[in-house]
Design a protein around this nucleic acid. Structure first.
Lengths: 231, 231
DNA sequence: ACCTGAACACCGTTCAAGT
DNA sequence: ACCTGAACACCGTTCAAGT
C-alpha cells in the first residue's frame, strides 16, 4: 500500500534535470506534435517547466537548436549497410530514405537548406553516400564535390513536395505559379509557353530519380578542374 | 489657379500614397540599408509613416513581401540578350549574374531556396536559361527539368558563400564543421577522413563551374523517363 | 474602398541575482 | 556551476471602427 508515502518523488511528469539531449528530445516531441514553428525557446521552456533563459546554458540559439533537432531526425535514415544490389540502386535507396525523413517535416527540412549541418547523423549519411560513389568508381575528387549537390537536391525536393501538403496556403502558392505561367504570352516567353505545365509538374518520383541520374552521370564523366587557391 | 495655396500638401518627404510597388520599393531600400531581417511589417510601416495593418491591403503576408522584394532584385540579372560566344559560356554568364545578385543579399536569397518564385523577373531568368539550353541542343523535356536544378544550385551556392561573410557567426559555423570532420576517426568514417578538407572547401568559382558542367553534361546525356501520372 | 489604432498572442536574448 | 525572473526590444496578424 502506501507506495506514495513519499510524495516528493515522481510528480506526474517528474521534472527531469535539464540536459542538452533532454532539451533536444523534448523539442523533437513538440515538433512532431505541433510543427517546427511552435518549437520556440519560450514554448520549449514552458514544456520543460522552466524559464527560457535556462535553455541558453545548453543551446547557443534557436538556429543551433533546430540544427540539433534535424540531426536527431536523421538518425532514422536507412543507410542500407550491407545491402545487396547495384551501387546506384543502393544510393538511390539511401537518398530516398533521407528524403522521406525530411519529407515528414518539411519546415525543419528548410533548416538543412539554409544551415551548414555537421551533426553525427548527417555525417553518417555523407559517409554512406561517399562509400557508394566510390563503389561506383567515381574518382574521390569528383565524389567530394558531388555529395554536396546530391544531398542538396534530395533536400530541396523534399522541402518542395513536403511543403505542398503541409499548409493549405502551399496549394495556392503552386497555383499562383501555374497562373503566372499561363498568363505569359508565347511572344515574350516562347520557351516557357512551349513547355507549359511540364515546367512545373513538381518533383514526382521519376523526376527526382532523373535528377539523381543526371548528377551521377555528369559527375562520373566530368573531370574536376585543377585545384585553385581557396579561402 | 492657386492650386498650391493650401499648405497642407507636400510636407517634407511628402508621404506618398500607399501602393504595392511603393511598399516593395521601400522594403528593398530598408533591406539594402539594414538587411532583410529588419524588413518587418512593423518596421516597414514605420518607414512609410503608417500602421502595420495598412500594409495588409497590398501584401498578403511577410513571406509574400519577401518574395516580391526578391523579384525586384532579380531585375538586375544580366540576361545577356544577344550576347556573343558559345551557348555554354553565355549560360554560365547568366547564372553567374543571377548568383551575384543573390550573393549580395544572402538572407533574402534564402527566400529563393524556400519559396516557389513566380515573379516576372524570375520568369525572365527561366526563359533566358531555357533559350540557351535549347541553343545547346538539349531536348525540351530534359531542359524543362534541368532549369530548376540549375537555378537551385546557383541559389544554394550563393547562399552558402554569401552567408559566410555576412554574419560573424558564419565563420564559426564553418569551423564547427571542419572541427567535426577532423574529430572523426578514419576507422568509422574512412571516406570522409580520406577526402579531408576537400570535402568542405566551399563553393569557390571553379567548384561552382564544375557543378554546372556536371549538370549540363548529365542533362544532355540522360534521357527522361516516360511521363508518369502526376498531381 | 481604403486605412488605421489598438489589441491579441506571441517572439529571442541578456543580465543581474540567486542557489 | 547552474538556473532563473524579469526586463528589453521587438514580432505577425486581425478586427472593429473610422473616413
Amino acid at each position: 500500500m502506501d507506495r506514495n508515502s513519499t510524495p516528493s518523488r515522481r510528480e506526474r511528469p517528474a521534472k527531469p534535470a535539464l540536459t542538452r539531449a533532454g532539451i533536444v528530445a523534448t523539442a523533437v516531441d513538440v515538433m512532431r506534435a505541433e510543427g517546427v514553428e511552435r518549437v520556440t525557446m519560450r514554448r520549449l521552456a514552458k514544456e520543460l517547466d522552466t524559464g527560457p533563459a535556462s535553455l541558453y546554458v545548453y543551446v547557443k540559439d534557436t538556429e543551433e537548436l533546430h540544427a540539433a533537432m534535424l540531426d536527431e531526425l536523421l538518425a532514422e535514415v536507412d543507410l542500407g549497410d550491407g545491402g545487396a544490389g547495384e551501387w546506384r540502386d543502393r544510393l538511390w535507396a539511401v537518398l530516398g530514405s533521407y528524403r522521406s525523413v525530411l519529407f515528414a517535416q518539411p519546415s525543419l527540412a528548410r533548416v538543412a537548406l539554409v544551415t551548414r549541418l555537421s551533426g553525427p547523423h548527417y555525417l553518417a549519411v555523407v559517409e554512406a553516400v561517399l562509400a557508394l560513389l566510390d563503389e561506383g568508381g567515381m574518382p574521390p575528387g569528383q565524389a567530394a564535390w558531388a555529395v554536396d549537390v546530391l544531398l542538396l537536391i534530395a533536400t530541396a525536393t523534399a522541402v518542395e513536395t513536403g511543403g505542398r501538403q503541409e499548409k493549405p496556403g502551399a496549394e495556392r502558392e503552386h497555383d499562383v505559379l501555374v497562373e503566372s505561367l499561363a498568363g505569359l504570352s508565347a511572344e515574350t516567353h516562347p520557351y516557357i509557353a512551349a513547355l507549359g505545365p511540364d515546367l512545373v509538374s513538381g518533383p514526382g518520383p521519376s523526376r527526382v530519380r532523373w535528377a539523381f541520374d543526371v548528377l551521377l552521370n555528369g559527375a562520373l564523366s566530368t573531370a574536376r578542374p585543377p585545384i585553385e587557391e581557396h579561402r
